[in-house]
Amino acid sequence: MANVTVTIDSRKVTVPSGTFVIEAAKKVGIEIPALCYDPNLEVVGACRLCLVEIEGSRKLQTACSTKVWDGMVVYTQSERVINARKEILQLLLDNHPNDCLTCQKAGECLLQKYAYEYDVKFREHNGARRPALMDTSSPYILKDDSKCILCGKCVRTCAQVADRQVLTFANRGFDTRIVADSNFTLEESSCVSCNRCVTVCPVGALVDKRLLGKGRVWEYEIKETKCKVCDYGCNFEILSKDGKNVAVRAKAPSNGRPLCLKGRLTTEFIYLDEPYTPYKKENGKFKETTWKEALGIEDIIEKLLDKEEISTGVEYNG
């Protein structure tokens, strides 16, 4: 593919034609705010936060879904752009619960990050808000609809694995929601608790329930590890606080890696000082189960029990 040169905020960058503006900007260290864009997922252009001004185009354009062309001149910080982003963030905050103090996502939440950067604040109003629907049915995932900003990343990532496609959009307009299998709880639905959706959710709408109350992201030391269960080698993070491994969480999957519950539990079992009770879904009900059963492979467990031996093979990049 031919290369093209574009100017972004007066910095010149040469990239292959067909590159999206947001990626080209990244190459010269310009971060364009984005809530719905993820290079591993289909581009949908839903959040509109990545709007930029492009010379010669009257309308603002979304950087995540506009391809560069030779000689393109982009402004990512013009007054018009900033104002539009502020308004969009305000619209999101106007429909978002003000409980960042206790939200599990604090410190990692993209909405929080951008609201801070653009100095947009919560405010009082009497208008409608998203209903506070909370799905607590799963021991692994907490789904809080009131926090969802409908970026659709969870839907897209879940659909990337052929036999999952659990999450979908439901209803229209202001009443739009993310539902599992046309509106079941996660427990009743066909969700396999792989936590792909949790890893991509930019806000606190989908969180790993096993992390609740364990600590703040800024308190953790985070080590990365590759799953040993199958050849995909999905990535997990081991979170430790005060020298103790307190939780394991999935990292966003890429390159066709599926993520699965077994891998995560196995990793928990290997690394956590005190692994939490495993649960297993049977006929649409979560049941407490034994580690043997949860991990499924009895003879492997025997081996795994010898932790010393295994942990030497772990890559740390924390």
Partner: peptide, 11 residues
């Protein structure tokens, strides 16, 4: 009738 996809229209 808004489909609910994008923020400016939905909200």
């Amino acid at each position: 009738e808004s489909c609910g996809k994008c923020v400016p229209c939905r909200e």
